[in-house]
Design a protein around this nucleic acid. Structure first.
Length: 197
DNA sequence: ACGGAGATCTTCT
DNA sequence: GAAGATCTCCGTT
């Protein structure tokens, strides 16, 4: 079942936790690429000083104010695309970063998209998984609750609390003040081979 | 195994 | 003009 707008229209921390174990699907050129989400990060409202949304709307972060379930895809370090899903009611600039997936289908295409690295490293990081799945600026602002977009999340296997743990978000600049720097807003599946670190 | 640096360019100060 | 929600390669241990 494809996750709908109601699923995403909740607090980003709840959505980040519940996204673990769901399936990310990308359909391209008649092929289906998919994997199970094993790691996420929540970026919450205007008060979250680690979030792109902290200073209000800009041309880049505009998708964060869009309807829950839309994609926010942006370029980091001049080189890599990161995939987020917008959540909460649209008066709050909140989103969840998809940090890692466990590949399921379309393995041959993922391998072609990730030459020079071996299987576990295809998708164990936010930029690695967009490379493997062929996600980039074309997917920015897509409605991920609409299957005709070719990009969506669907239910798969629920992950029990005993298999989930949390920690601080990864890669934040030293400029980010406490408590935002070390607050636990990253969720991952314990002992999963595809978690980024 | 671990650490440092380079790649590369958009966005915001 | 500087920094950024990263990854890979190359060096040393």
């Amino acid at each position: 079942m494809i996750l709908d707008k109601d699923f995403y229209a909740r607090n980003a921390c709840i959505v980040a936790r519940e996204l673990l174990g769901t399936r990310l699907v990308h359909q391209v050129d008649g092929a289906t690429l998919s994997g199970i989400i094993v790691e996420t990060e929540a970026y919450t409202g205007l008060d979250d000083l680690a979030s792109h949304g902290r200073a209000g709307q800009t041309s880049r972060n505009l998708p964060m104010w869009e309807e829950p379930g839309h994609a926010y895809v942006y370029l980091v370090y001049g080189m890599y695309w990161l995939l987020n899903v917008v959540c909460e009611p649209s008066d709050q600039p909140a989103a969840v970063l998809i940090r890692a997936i466990e590949p399921e289908t379309g393995l041959d295409i993922m391998q072609a998209n990730r030459p020079k690295v071996r299987q576990p490293q295809w998708t164990n990081g936010p930029a690695k998984l967009t490379l493997a799945l062929g996600i980039d600026s074309r997917h920015n602002r897509l409605n991920m609750t609409d299957p005709t977009s070719g990009l969506w999340l669907e239910t798969s296997k629920p992950i029990p609390d005993e298999q989930v743990t949390t920690g601080p978000r990864i890669g934040l600049g030293k400029q980010v003040p406490e408590p935002w720097l070390s607050i636990h807003r990253r969720w991952w599946i314990v002992d999963n081979r595809y978690v980024s670190c």
